[in-house]
Computed example of a mutant assay.
Amino acid sequence: MSFTLATWNINSVRLREGLVARLMREEAPDVLCLQECKSPVESIPFESFRALGYEHMVARGQKGYNGVAIFSKIPMEEAGAGDYANLGHARHVAGRLANGVTVHNFYVPAGGDVPDREVNEKFGQKLDYLTHMRDEFAAKAPERAILVGDLNIAPREDDVWSHKQLLKIVSHTPIEVEHLDAVMKAGNWVDVTRQDIPEGLLYSWWSYRAKDWSAADKGRRLDHIWATADIAGAASGSRILRDVRGWEQPSDHAPVFATFDL
């Protein structure tokens, strides 16, 4: 069974319903994971997406903040949701596909502006969230699983426009990278995107603050697709749809794709 999966921080699924539908029509991933839906589950425009062939949805939502959803053309059942770091936020949901693969969709806290938990509570929450993820995966090693989402960390030097200038900027600090690496090792995860595209600058997010985001190209790779080692070798075709960042009234993130032949 071959299927294509995409992950995208949509920054309001209701505001950008048309963009989601466009991606579904033009790219037609079999599974689409969205983060920062900013909507209660009952207000997600599921019927619009169902009409495009996405008959299955699992989601967690809250009004105006956070929120994660998985839409699938493949039969899918809910496989749980975790309240990591006990924040009470809608930041994780999992779905199990008909082929037995579990898809985890995460929206890791951004962490605020100051990379110091003593003066910035949000940064501490981010580190605690990642630690909880690590502990969960260490306690029960996942198998035949895919982890996607806006993890809000660009781990490699070539995942940011300037490694030196961003070392003290939240999303690329050494302590965040260390925490993300610990999550990856605990779950025996493989970074599928970098498995397919091992070298070169690669971004999935560009700030709204840049007047011409494409020309400035000060991006970061915050959005990820991982797979457990037992199925990572079945992944191929990874790509980031940079052009989507230039659509009308876009999210500041671009969707990330990978194909799995299982």
Rank of each mutant, 00 (worst) to 15 (best):
Y203L: 05
R221Q: 09
D212E: 13
L180S: 03
L201K: 11
H179Y: 13
G200E: 09
A216V: 14
T193S: 12
T228R: 03
Y208N: 12
R239P: 07
D212T: 07
S204F: 00
T193L: 12
Y208H: 10
A235P: 06
S238M: 03
L201G: 06
A215Y: 07
Q195R: 13
A235C: 14
S236R: 15
G233D: 08
A215D: 14
R209H: 12
R194I: 09
G237M: 08
P198H: 08
W189T: 00
D196S: 11
A210M: 12
S207W: 02
L180V: 00
L180I: 01
K211T: 12
R242Q: 14
G233C: 10
R220N: 03
L222Y: 02
S207V: 03
T228H: 05
D217W: 01
S238F: 11
I225N: 03
D191I: 06
R221W: 08
N188M: 04
R194G: 06
D243T: 15
V192G: 04
I225D: 00
A215V: 14
L222N: 07
A182C: 01
L201Y: 14
R221H: 14
W205K: 08
A234Q: 15
R220A: 12
V256F: 07
Y203C: 02
L180K: 05
A229H: 06
R245C: 04
I231L: 04
D217V: 07
T228W: 01
F257C: 02
D223L: 11
R209C: 02
S207F: 02
K218T: 11
L202Q: 00
A216Y: 00
L201N: 08
V244N: 05
S236G: 13
A227S: 05
K185R: 14
A215G: 05
W205E: 02
P250H: 03
W226F: 15
G246T: 07
S236Y: 15
L222T: 00
D181Q: 02
V192I: 15
H224S: 01
S251R: 06
I240V: 15
Q249R: 14
D252L: 10
P255M: 10
